[in-house]
Amino acid sequence: MQGQLPKSCPSCGAGLRVVQLACPGCKTLVSGSYPLPPLSRLSDEDQEFVLSFILSSGSLKQMARLYGVSYPTVRNRLDDLISLLSDATEAPDGNEVKDGE
């Protein structure tokens, strides 16, 4: 079973960073300190929403039908996500991004 990618520290809640990558073929390890990409730092539900949005060719009307909600409800959620991603892009470490800002 594939585990879910943890996004924040279970102890202090700060955003996590990638410090090691491995090649599954030759087992080479790469160490460093890389921030997670902004999309990877979204919650699972938000990532699913972004995926559905792309698969719907960016049609909010189709998204509204898919989720069974009204057009402005979907648009408002998308705008909230845009706001979150804008903050994440400005703070690439993910430590300074706060929900609902």
Partner: peptide, 13 residues
């Protein structure tokens, strides 16, 4: 980052 705020809850309810 956590969930996008109240609109996420509205869609789930």
């Amino acid at each position: 980052m956590e969930n996008s705020p109240s609109t996420h809850q509205e869609m789930q309810q």
